[in-house]
Design a protein around this nucleic acid. Structure first.
Lengths: 209, 209
DNA sequence: TGCTTTATGTATCTTTTGATACCGTTTTTT
DNA sequence: AAAAAACGGTATCAAAAGATACATAAAGCA
């Protein structure tokens, strides 16, 4: 791969060319398959990942249940990995690819170093933390104050917008997992929506109307 | 106030003496009364606060309801102010003193500057973000998965532990606010606890047994 | 093809929580 | 002292959500 080509793949957020050059020197690109685990609980992090292409699902695993924290998408890094790396702690969450993905990785010791050298790196970190916080706050409010039917609808419209299609590929069961409820409740609500003409239901997918 | 006396008040997290010296040069101490508003929504931040003594309640105000984000306690700074200051955005939350407090403040432009100079400042920032995230995640899980009676009990035992006394001074109404429910529900649950011998109820306070 | 798994529909019942209303008591304010 | 506000107890009703059970259909697979 040409050097200029590599540089072009790095997120535009990194404005200093010296930083981009350092990334190129110390980092490398890896590819992972769908369902590959990048990080698991209890693991020390030698490398920090930045997603170039694809998507990583970050979650915590408790005795009985699983808690979805966020998805790391193109141009983003994993906040949990970042802070674990920074304090040299083990990871408290899992990271699994939801699709074949290309990841840029570099040694975690540079996280600290770069903070003392590059403003755009600092801004990127703070932005990462703050936007994950806001995201979680949104989920919190939603769970705390919105009835489930509203949350289902929000989930669908959000995904439709993000994926730019009214056809959402997800089973009732998995939708129940995402929202922390049960399949029966989801089926009931979706059926209601269908009768109100808000959606059309298919096996394995839901079409917004 | 003696210079050494002032320096002693600054959080120990700041290890570089040059940083402590700069804080002293550019910052100042202010005192606020209970119920004084330090930050309001829509406001630009010229100064970043670090709480030396006392407590600040940080929350968002929506049409109908209020969402408690966190309390800023001794040695801590306000994460929302921090990131608002960093990106030169207006605040999206309110900060109100819950008791007479002493606050150290300094110009927000230094937030960025210090990141390029002081590791301990960077560590402090990242620690601030990460611990607020963990805190919120805990609340999220609790709201999403725990029944209210369990949340009430957790709230009480947490406070008892933190304040190192089994006597929690709070009204049913305010406890309901904290947990995002209604007074009647709280009274009902507490009465149940009392009958089970878990607590003893007083006007304005609850004693854990 | 037949078997198994996955996906969905739906009825019934129970529990949890919230909404409302009314009461008496204590504390604070005027 | 009178009035107002805050605090807490409790009864009744309704709604939301979860639990359980059973049924049918489609898809994948041996």
């Amino acid at each position: 791969m040409e050097e200029s080509e590599i540089l072009a793949k790095l997120p535009k957020a990194f404005t200093e060319s010296a930083l981009r050059q350092e990334m190129l020197t110390h980092g490398k690109f890896i590819t992972v398959n769908k369902d590959d685990t990048l990080v698991r609980e209890g693991q020390y992090l030698d490398f920090l990942p930045i997603v170039i292409k694809g998507e990583i699902r970050v979650f915590q695993q408790k005795e009985d249940r699983e808690i979805l924290l966020y998805y790391v998408r193109e141009g983003q890094t994993c906040m949990m990995s970042l802070s674990a790396a920074y304090f040299n702690h083990t990871s408290t969450s899992y990271g699994v690819a939801t699709k074949p993905s290309e990841i840029f990785v570099f040694p975690t010791r540079l996280v600290n170093e770069w903070q003392l050298k590059y403003s755009s790196w600092n801004a990127y970190l703070i932005q990462t933390f703050r936007s994950r916080y806001d995201e979680l706050l949104g989920s919190f409010e939603s769970v705390a104050f919105d009835p489930i039917d509203k949350r289902v609808l929000s989930y669908l419209t959000d995904r439709a917008k993000k994926e730019n299609t009214p056809q959402i590929a997800i089973s009732h069961q998995n939708l129940a997992y995402e929202l922390g409820t049960t399949r029966v409740v989801i089926s009931r609500i979706l059926k209601g929506f269908e009768q109100q003409g808000k959606v059309k239901l298919f096996r394995g997918s839901i079409q917004l109307k």
